[in-house]
Design a binder for these strands. Structure first.
Ligand SMILES: [Zn+2]
Ligand SMILES: [Zn+2]
Ligand SMILES: [Zn+2]
Ligand SMILES: [Zn+2]
Lengths: 131, 131
DNA sequence: TTTAATATGTTATATTATAACATTGTTATA
DNA sequence: TATAACAATGTTATAATATAACATATTAAA
């Protein structure tokens, strides 16, 4: 069951399935609790699967919340350009898919001489309902 | 010693002093260890000071590293628009101060109806030295 | 000077994440 | 088919990050 390009291992599938069913970011230990019936009994099993899923872009980590969400953006096969909208009221998180924004940020340069190959952007505010 | 606009309490000063002397993001427990000689003995004392310093924009949290860095941007009195450049090689973190970028992001709108009042952006790559 | 608000001190514990090592399964190839 | 190399899994323990809860002290305002 070695890892081939594009194939997911058993544990990776279990974790991804569960995250995809949720429509919101999930905490690692909440995932762990819920996949225990599927045989994943300890944190490393979940964290390994998450690490790999994040690496291949199927899952993103919401850094400000230490939570994980399935990628909703089909073009996002590698997780190197991510943007999220986060409501401070209801905690709803949405992946922003905005070509202008991603183009602007992917092309961003400053005078530091630094070569950027990845970014993560988190916007905070209030959604319609929460205003 | 109640908090007045612009004044820092004793513990806040101690923590900020220490962070400002470092030229890199510091972990909360490393701060704790180093301010113990000044009398801050337990995590809550450091985390409270950090919370407040972040709130007033004197310190920013680098979310992807769970680390704290002093604000280098004098206009950044409220910490609602932050951008950082992070080297994956040497871990050097620099606060980006780029009016065009901040103007673009502060004005960003999408069709979600969400009203954004804060963002945090983290760029990753390799600095000159690390290439 | 009473009251309210803010800050501090302290202990314990919750939450998030990784180290380390043994075992099993898979692929490649000798 | 052996056997070696690698990838994935299972398992226990522990590290690292962060907060709850409550007592006390300090300050500002009424
Ligand atoms: Zn995505
Ligand atoms: Zn909301
Ligand atoms: Zn700043
Ligand atoms: Zn570097």
């Amino acid at each position: 069951m070695a890892q081939k390009q594009g194939y997911l291992s058993k544990n990776q599938k279990i974790v991804l399935d569960y995250i995809e069913k949720a429509n919101q970011p999930l905490k690692a230990y909440s995932i762990l609790f819920n996949v225990q019936k599927k045989g994943l009994k300890a944190p490393p099993q979940v964290y390994r699967a998450l690490d790999r899923l994040v690496e291949i872009g199927k899952v993103h980590k919401i850094e400000s919340k230490n939570a994980f969400v399935a990628c909703k953006n089909s073009s996002c096969t590698i997780s190197n350009a991510t943007a999220f909208s986060i409501c401070d009221g209801c905690e709803k998180v949405t992946e922003i898919s905005n070509p202008k924004l991603s183009k602007y940020l992917s092309g961003f340069q400053d005078n530091s001489g630094m070569k950027y190959n990845k970014y993560n952007l988190e916007f905070f505010g209030l959604c319609k309902k929460c205003r």
